[in-house]
């Protein structure tokens, strides 16, 4: 059985859920081999073993974290050349997609992004044109390189050895051309990552102001959810741009997407249409988002959302 390389998405060894989803998918396609680049492997080892990594390639050179994207491309390219894997899976994050794209160019392969499923033979399912069309694609020359959207598979534990193998690469001058000199973190509290969250609560024009987003945040915190925003809300400066859901923003696919005060233009639907359950609150009964809602309430979000927040707290208590 050929190895399937899975690039581990982590922050100092804290492994993101999407990695466990990728390991689960990789088991269908071959033998999962995790690729851990960066510091903190000791924190990651046991969860990678629990979710089925037969092998883990560890590239821990501190230099690898100093440059944009290219060092991870160098690590994966060297593994692709030496190990001839059956394929490479990466998360469909901004970094994951760029690593995949550069890797495809470097090793002379094809790349597919934003898969929502990967089946036998690396046939990839994608949801395109704002969720309107389902496409089955495949890579037909070179090793298949595929990025998968978070929440595309339920992580399943399947204990394996996680046999560790150190990898070191020599970075070229081009790999070191874009140097990261500072990391600036914005306050996001304890909320989960928007892209990975199982529940997302989003606010739009109907929220009315930046201060009023407290109503959205309160519900999100009661549900353990991430907060999202429509473009109208981020353009108005009510909520930071990196939380924008939709075309030109984030694409999310949570178990529950709850939209408050968002009318649901195609640009917004493109970023959330594949959510499992959609709940909509809007005072305009004609809002297009009601057309794809599993449950909707026509009403004032400033009444409905706080009441829901209290109800969630009561029922969770």
């Amino acid at each position: 059985m050929s190895e399937i390389l899975v690039l581990v998405d982590h922050a100092d060894g804290a492994v993101k859920k999407v990695t466990l989803e990728l390991l689960t998918l990789a088991r269908r396609l071959g033998e999962p081999a995790a690729v851990f680049v960066g510091q903190g492997y000791d924190n990651a080892k046991s969860i990678l073993a629990e979710y089925g990594a037969a092998k883990v390639y560890v590239a821990a050179d501190a230099e690898l974290a100093e440059y944009v994207v290219a060092p991870k491309v160098a690590v994966l390219a060297s593994l692709v050349q030496d190990r001839q894997p059956g394929g490479v899976l990466l998360p469909s994050s901004a970094d994951g997609k760029e690593i995949a794209g550069r890797l495809a160019v470097r090793v002379g392969a094809g790349v597919i992004t934003d898969a929502v499923d990967v089946r036998d033979g690396f046939v990839c399912e994608q949801s395109v044109f704002g969720g309107g069309t389902i496409v089955q694609s495949r890579v037909r020359s070179g090793v298949p390189i595929v990025t998968v959207r978070p929440n595309s598979a339920a992580p399943e534990a399947a204990p394996a050895d996680a046999a560790e193998e150190q990898v070191s690469v020599t970075l070229s001058d081009a790999d070191k051309a874009a140097r990261i000199t500072d990391r600036v973190e914005v306050e996001k509290g304890e909320r989960p990552d928007l892209a990975e969250a199982s529940i997302v609560v989003s606010g739009g024009r109907g929220v009315g102001s930046g201060e009023n987003f407290a109503v959205i945040e309160a519900l999100a915190d009661a549900l353990g959810a991430a907060v999202g925003a429509s473009r109208a809300a981020t353009d108005a400066g009510w909520y930071p741009h990196q939380y924008q859901v939709g075309q030109t923003g984030k694409t999310v696919s949570p178990q529950l997407y709850l939209a408050a005060g968002i009318s649901g233009a195609i640009q917004h639907r493109a970023g959330m249409q594949t959510s499992k359950t959609i709940v909509v609150v809007n005072k305009d009964a004609e809002a297009p988002l009601f057309e794809i809602a599993d449950f909707g309430v026509v009403g004032d979000l400033h009444q409905v959302v706080p009441q829901l927040t209290e109800e969630v707290k009561k029922r969770k208590a």
């Binding site: 009444q303 959302v305 706080p306 927040t309 109800e311 029922r315």
Partner: peptide, 13 residues
């Protein structure tokens, strides 16, 4: 899709 009659939040819950 229901119209809020003062219990919209409870109905979503």
């Amino acid at each position: 899709v229901v119209t809020d009659e003062g219990d919209g939040g409870v109905k979503i819950a």
